[in-house]
């Protein structure tokens, strides 16, 4: 299901060229959170390339990618899958009312040692 506009936007936000991918699967081989993602890094690359983006926008994977950049660092073709995942995540949270994390949820999640950094980072990743 091709969605050209959406694809163009994702490519623009991310600056990634998915055509560089040679489908070696190293991103998914190196991903530390593979098992928590229903769409894996290599699938993000190939599905964005095909313009098949709606399923990715509904995917839980958007919130479980750790942005650890292992896939970016180790990709032999310099494709940068994590940047594509970020772009899809942004395409979701930039929509009205689509924030993944709400301030009122925070108090329940806190413990006394949790560093501010975690909360700030999560808001950056999950909310607009």
């Amino acid at each position: 299901m091709e969605n050209t506009n959406l694809k163009e936007r994702i490519l623009e936000i991310s600056g990634v060229n998915p055509r560089k991918c040679m489908k070696c699967g190293k991103c998914s081989g190196t991903c530390p959170n593979y098992d928590e993602m229903e769409y894996h890094p290599h699938q993000f690359v190939s599905m964005v390339e095909k313009g098949d983006i709606e399923p990715l926008m509904k995917a839980e994977s958007l919130w479980t990618c750790l942005s650890c950049f292992a896939c970016v660092e180790r990709c032999p073709r310099s494709v940068e899958p994590a940047k594509l995942i970020e772009a899809v995540r942004l395409a979701v949270i930039r929509q009205q009312g689509a924030n993944h994390l709400k301030p009122q949820d925070i108090p329940d999640k806190l413990d006394e040692d949790l560093p501010q950094q975690a909360i700030v980072s999560a808001f950056r990743k999950y909310t607009k």
């Binding site: 530390p32 959170n33 928590e36 919130w63 479980t64 750790l66 942005s67 650890c68 292992a70 994390l101 999640k109 949790l114 950094q117 975690a118 909360i119 980072s121 999560a122 990743k125 999950y126």
Partner: peptide, 19 residues
């Protein structure tokens, strides 16, 4: 140089525990 789980601890503690 592998991820500790990062900010996932906030939402999905199990991930951070595993990593």
């Amino acid at each position: 140089n592998e991820c500790c789980g990062g900010y996932a601890t906030l939402e999905k503690k199990a991930i951070a525990e595993k990593k």
